[in-house]
Amino acid sequence: MRTISDKQGLTLKAATRRSVDMAGGGDAFQHVTRIRSAQLSKCGSTGEENAEKFLPIDVAVEADIEAGLPIILSAMADIVGYRVTPIVECADLSVALAPPTHRDLVRLNSDLMDVVRAVGDALDDDHVDGREKKEITREIDEAIKALQALQQRIGGAA
């Protein structure tokens, strides 16, 4: 009997889909990993025929690296009762971080407004369907990336 539940397996598959999507989609991501697009799709599929197909751990790491966020890693950590937090190393003074610019603020504002737009569009009919949930999640992931980039530009967390 497997240790992870069906629900946890679905969580991993959802994280796989999000990470691969944030990595540019299967067609793009396949060129920077060892698995082709069709296999990537099967690893994210919730269909009965693909229930036991998951990303190998090295490909999961590559997906998260390409996505710019620890999406799969965070899902795995949550399943085993942990949280993932970023490591911001400020000790290396040989690498000078450029201070944030107005361009960074414009990008952040745009990413945050994309979240607001996606949620607003979803609420127009008082129901958030699967497609809308996926869009909202993608926009939130993009906003998180922008916020983390800004945090790094100011030298990390206080």
Rank of each mutant, 00 (worst) to 15 (best):
A77I: 01
R103L: 11
D129E: 09
G81K: 14
L147P: 10
R83G: 05
D78N: 15
Q30L: 02
K13V: 00
R2K: 12
G156N: 01
D104I: 06
L69M: 15
D111G: 01
P56T: 03
L105E: 14
I154D: 06
T46G: 12
A15T: 01
E135R: 14
V61T: 03
L97Q: 11
S5C: 10
D126S: 15
R83W: 14
T85A: 15
A122E: 12
G44R: 00
L10I: 04
G26L: 04
A118Y: 05
V128G: 03
E66M: 07
L123N: 11
T3P: 02
A28D: 07
A158L: 01
L123D: 13
A15G: 06
Q152G: 11
G155W: 08
L105G: 10
D104P: 02
I4N: 13
E49K: 14
D6I: 11
G26I: 02
V128A: 03
D129K: 15
Q152E: 03
G130Q: 12
A75W: 01
D129A: 14
E52F: 08
D141K: 07
L40M: 09
M22E: 11
P86H: 11
V61F: 04
G9T: 02
E48K: 10
A157K: 06
G24S: 07
R103Y: 14
D129W: 12
A98Q: 12
H127F: 12
S110T: 14
V116S: 06
I35W: 01
L10R: 09
V95E: 11
V128S: 00
D129P: 04
P86I: 08
G9F: 07
G156Q: 04
L112E: 13
V116H: 15
A38C: 05
V80P: 06
H127K: 08
L150S: 00
E135S: 02
A75I: 00
A143Y: 13
V80I: 00
I154Q: 05
A75P: 04
T85S: 10
I4M: 12
R117F: 13
G120F: 06
T137Q: 05
A143Q: 01
T101W: 09
L147D: 06
S41P: 10
G68Q: 07
R153Y: 03
R103W: 12
V106G: 08
S19Y: 00
H31Y: 10
C90W: 05
S5Q: 08
L108A: 09
I136S: 07
D121L: 06
A51N: 15
A149G: 15
A146P: 00
S19I: 04
R131Q: 15
K133T: 14
I4T: 13
R36T: 13
R34T: 14
